[in-house]
């Protein structure tokens, strides 16, 4: 039954380019990219019980690296791999620093680490273009077509989603959930808690980096706002709105927030207030997120 739903969903998503005009297709591409970011946040927040505020910075680092590498003459696919590798490397550093903390300390530490990246991107003008950002030249040839780009994003996004889904359902994922519930008990049972959290952190960072590389292809532009705190918060908010502890929650959250932003901002310049109120309403009435609400209703 579930397989049928998933297949139907994939077919629906794959047929979007035939149904949507180019602007709405762009929004759909953005939703897919940000859903991968939200899922990567969810991996840590929902399964390992560690809420990160640095994933925007990891995501954006990958975006920067892709655009810088491509400008230096690296083929686009290799630039994307470099971007993901850079995000992975950054996650290793962040992970080493952050995994021994939890709760609000983890939140603040990752926030500070993210701010460092933002500061570097803002100040290192020679490499990052500073405040003005960097203009890419990636949307050429095969990638110039927005339909093909959408399908590429969909295929990569689907593979990443499947990988994350497998990961959280593996014995590793089960151990993570147990660590979330009681790290001391897991340590007493002989599990290496920091090593598991470190691995989860790096995996999550790699997924965020993959989303960032897709974003480079999509946006063809990067500036410090891409690595700034609001980006991290947005990823987290999408995960929460969709449902923490549910991988597909990221997709739902990204869809709801981006679609809402598009819809509301067309009518009022107070759209940020509307988004804020919506988020508050979801926290109050659906603390498990929209997917959590759906599951509770269907039971």
């Amino acid at each position: 039954m579930r397989a049928v739903f998933i297949l139907a969903g994939l077919v629906a998503l794959a047929s979007m380019p035939l149904l949507l005009p180019s602007y709405q297709l762009g929004i759909a591409s953005e939703i897919l990219i940000f859903s991968v970011l939200a899922m990567s946040v969810n991996l840590l927040a929902g399964y390992a019980g560690r809420t990160p505020l640095c994933h925007g910075a990891i995501f954006g680092t990958s975006t920067y690296v892709v655009i810088i590498a491509a400008a230096a003459g690296v083929p686009v696919w290799a630039a994307c791999l470099l971007g993901v590798a850079a995000a992975g490397g950054l996650s290793v550093v962040f992970g080493i620093i952050a995994v021994r903390t939890s709760g609000v300390y983890f939140l603040l530490l990752t926030l500070a680490l993210g701010l460092i990246i933002w500061g570097i991107c803002l100040r290192w003008t020679g490499v990052t273009g500073g405040e003005n950002g960097l203009r890419g030249d990636l949307r050429q040839g095969w990638l110039a077509d927005s339909q093909r780009l959408y399908w590429l994003i969909l295929v990569v996004g689907a593979v990443l989603t499947f990988a994350m889904w497998r990961l959280v359902r593996s014995p590793f994922g089960l151990t993570l959930r147990a660590i979330k519930d009681s790290p001391s008990r897991m340590a007493a049972l002989g599990h290496d808690v920091p090593a598991h959290l470190f691995a989860a952190f790096v995996a999550s960072g790699l997924f965020a980096g993959a989303a960032g590389a897709l974003y480079a292809l999509f946006n063809d532009f990067v500036s410090p706002t891409t690595v700034a705190l609001p980006q991290s918060v947005e990823g987290l908010l999408m995960a929460i709105v969709g449902g923490v502890g549910n991988i597909l929650g990221g997709l739902v959250g990204a869809f709801v927030l981006i679609a809402l932003e598009q819809f509301v901002s067309a009518y009022t310049e107070r759209w940020l207030s509307v988004l804020g109120l919506t988020a508050i309403a979801i926290m109050l009435f659906a603390p498990q997120g929209l997917l959590g609400l759906l599951q509770r209703k269907s039971q």
Partner: peptide, 16 residues
């Protein structure tokens, strides 16, 4: 005041 939003709005104005 955000370049990513500016891009999105430019796409909306031109494509939609």
């Amino acid at each position: 005041s955000n370049p990513d939003t500016a891009l999105q709005k430019a796409r909306r104005l031109v494509e939609q």
